[in-house]
Every structure is written in C-alpha cells, then in structure tokens.
C-alpha cells in the first residue's frame, strides 16, 4: 500500500500580500493569458511504500522544501493531489516550534504537544527524549544559550519519540556532530526496519547515501531524474562536477 502518493502535483509561487494581492488576484481572473505563473513544483508524480526512504536533491530553489511541506500538509497543491496515509513528523527548519526564552525541558514538552502527544505520553517519553538528546544538565537552561547542534539534538529527539509513520527531514541533520549524526542515522534505520517512510532533502550526499534507497532530483520544480538513491546521487554529483 502506498503511504505517500503525489499525482500530477503543481504548486505556483510569488504570492502577493495587501494591495498587490488584490491586483494579482484580479489580473489572474480577468487576464489569465498575461498572468505570469512561477512554478515551485510542476507536475510531480511520486509514490512511496512502507519502508521506502527517498532522497530529494537539487540546487537551491528547485522545490525540495516545497515538496516536503506539501507532504506535511502545511501547504496545498494548486493542481493534482497529495495523499498521505499516517502520522507525519517534520523537521523542516532548525528550531521551528522552539522558543529561545524557554528552557530545554519546557521546549521538549511544548514540542511534544505540537507533535500531537497527550499529557500522559509526554510524561512517559520525557526522560527518553532528554536522554537521547544527550543535552545533560543544559536541559534546564534557556534555549538561547544552546548551539545550533544542541537545538537539532533536541528537535530530532522529540520527533523520533513521536514514532511517526512518515518522517520528513529538511537539511537539519547537517548541524549535528558526527557522533550524533550516526546516532540519528541508526534511529532512522530502526524506523525504516519498522516499515516507516522517510523523505530527506539535503545537500550532504554522504548522509543521503547512508539513509535512502530511492532518490528524486528536482530542477526548477520539475523532476529531472529519479531512480535508486545510489545511481541518482552519483549522477547528480557528476552534473555538479
């Protein structure tokens, strides 16, 4: 059964706010021919089954983050359909959902709630999350004293504890130190063994090779190429030279 399925998905961009919003709305309505469309994604098809892990590669602005936010249900496609079966956890930006003035522990509870935990489950999982993150005594300090790597540790630990059916990761792993990256990779391998789906966008090809079995290469919002992670990444690296 497919866990994630994209059917002819397109997403246009350059949204205007305020007066510009009215103008662009009217021009789209009355002069559609002259109305310019910028596609962040154009007619993307994709199907992921249990245990699949997809590497998303491409230059900046190719549509990688847009693809992830569509799967996360954070934005809606303009054309086509996005079908997702199961609970999604997303690490799309470092520390989103965290607040610098709250302590690590308070942020863990807040984030667990944001990811849909109950009070009971947050209490049960709290120690496990803190232990996994290896933050130690800093857990009682405000987040603004943390380094980027420490914030990532905390964010990943909470997301992993959710035990999601689909895990989306956009680049964030790169800020962790090698030891913690290895720990994350082992945790993700465990999730994959359990039939979970991973979608990972990154510019760090080594991590993608370790994590993924399939790949998709985006270029200006279109699928340039897809295939197994290994051959796709090799081709992408060759194109960069």
């Amino acid at each position: 059964m497919s866990v994630v399925r994209l059917e002819g998905v397109s997403k246009t961009y350059s949204r205007k706010v305020g007066r510009q919003f009215v103008k662009s709305y009217l021009s789209a309505r009355f002069r559609p021919a002259r109305h310019e469309q910028f596609y962040a994604l154009k007619r993307v098809n994709l199907e992921l089954r249990e245990g699949d892990s997809l590497a998303v590669v491409g230059p900046n602005g190719a549509g990688k983050s847009t693809l992830l936010s569509l799967v996360a249900g954070l934005s809606w496609p303009d054309e086509g359909r996005v079908l997702v079966n199961g609970r999604v956890a997303a690490l799309l930006e470092l520390g989103s959902g965290f607040h610098p003035d709250l302590t690590g522990a308070e942020n863990v509870r807040l984030n667990a709630a944001l990811l849909g935990f109950s009070r009971q489950r947050t209490r049960e999982k709290f120690d496990e999350i803190v232990e996994f993150s290896e933050i130690g005594q800093f857990i009682a300090e405000p987040l603004r004293t943390y380094s980027a790597g420490m914030i990532m540790r905390l964010a990943f630990s909470v997301a992993a504890a959710v035990d999601p059916d689909i895990l989306l990761i956009d680049e964030v792993l790169a800020v962790g130190d090698p030891a913690f990256q290895q720990k994350c990779i082992r945790k993700i391998q465990e999730l994959k063994q359990a039939g979970r789906v991973l979608i990972c966008a990154s510019h760090v090809m080594g991590t993608l090779r370790d994590l993924c079995n399939r790949g998709i290469w985006l270029e200006h919002g279109r699928v340039q190429r897809e295939g197994t992670a290994e051959e796709l990444i090799t081709a992408y690296e060759a194109s960069i030279g």
């Binding site: 936010s69 996360a72 249900g73 954070l74 999604v88 956890a89 997303a90 799309l92 930006e93 989103s96 959902g97 944001l114 990811l115 849909g116």
Partner: peptide, 9 residues
C-alpha cells in the same frame, strides 16, 4: 509564522 509554516498542527 514559523509555527504555522513549519510545524504540523
């Protein structure tokens, strides 16, 4: 905005 754009809730 950060919460709305990046966190599923």
């Amino acid at each position: 905005a950060g919460l709305v754009k990046r966190v599923i809730l």
